[in-house]
């Protein structure tokens, strides 16, 4: 007789079929897909990821950018085509079947952040794993103090969720910057960590959620520390290479921790020393 535990074990190791519903092109190389479960599906909490299996190509970890709150609802993923598997995901037409395992990993502690200020700092595709945090903050706006989203991308053409960013700005302080632009862009040009210095938050109550390229994370953490935010309240999502998703293969090992099992969300206090070890 199948038990709940068995169910979970099967979900962890055997992909379940999902059908591609909507597919939207966000930028030249990034697409957002809505995947509808053919079976029971699963609920996902902000920060978790799934392993996406493209039949005949391979399997990769992708964060859930639009989490289903209960089983049966669709899973939304935002994927940047960088290699074979991610390109296959981005190319899949509505109606195509893909396999999902998961959900895996821990979560952004959105609930424990309530009552204080919240700061989301994202770079590039790093906004995708943080979108659920923003959606949560919007849905529970009155539970937070100051709430800001700082987002950086390479050029204006590389910005994700441009329509949503405008809407988020009605209720949250949204600051967007790009590394390079021509004169058609009337927004900021500069790096995202620089925005931290002027963002509105109280360092003694804020929880900062950071995701992006590791170099950007490094300088964002420095800027947060300079504002007096303690390492225990700086949360990072680490997206190192990963294979099994269930803590068996060791591919995503970072010192004593396996990112797929213990992460991907860590506090800066947990990983500060590990991030400085060049061999890891």
């Amino acid at each position: 007789m199948a038990t709940v535990a068995d169910d979970r074990a099967v979900g962890a190791l055997v992909p379940s079929p999902f059908r591609v519903g909507e597919r939207r092109q966000d930028t030249a190389d990034t697409w957002t897909l809505t995947l509808e479960p053919l079976g029971d599906g699963f609920a996902v909490v902000p920060g978790q990821f799934v392993m996406v299996y493209m039949f005949g190509v391979g399997e990769v970890p992708i964060s859930v950018s639009g989490p289903p709150e209960s089983r049966g609802e669709p899973v939304v993923l935002t994927v940047r085509a960088v290699g074979a598997v991610t390109t296959a995901i981005c190319n899949s037409e509505p109606g195509a079947i893909v396999g999902l395992r998961g959900p895996f990993g821990n979560s952004w502690p959105v609930e424990s952040a309530s009552g204080g200020d919240v700061l989301v700092v994202a770079g590039g595709i790093g906004l995708a794993p943080l979108r659920p945090v923003v959606l949560h903050a919007l849905a529970h706006r009155s539970e937070y103090g100051a709430a800001s989203v700082l987002y950086g991308a390479r050029t204006p053409q590389d910005l994700l969720y441009t329509d949503e960013l405008r809407r988020w700005g009605d209720e949250l302080a949204v600051e967007v910057t790009v590394d390079a632009a021509d004169t058609a862009w009337l927004g900021r040009v500069g790096v995202v960590p620089k925005l931290v210095a002027q963002a509105e938050f109280r360092p003694d109550s804020v929880r900062a959620f950071v995701c992006g390229p590791e170099v950007m994370i490094h300088y964002t953490v420095e800027a947060l520390r300079e504002r007096g935010v303690p390492d225990e309240r700086i949360f990072l999502s680490l997206e190192r290479d990963m294979r099994c998703g269930v803590g068996l293969c060791g591919h995503c090992q970072l010192g004593p921790t396996l990112i797929c099992r213990d992460g991907p969300v860590y506090t800066q206090a947990q990983v500060a020393q590990l991030m400085e070890v060049r061999e890891l």
Partner: peptide, 12 residues
């Protein structure tokens, strides 16, 4: 200098 690193170039 940080921008010279072109951190978004390869997604990392």
């Amino acid at each position: 200098r940080l921008r010279l690193l072109d951190v978004y170039g390869d997604g990392r």
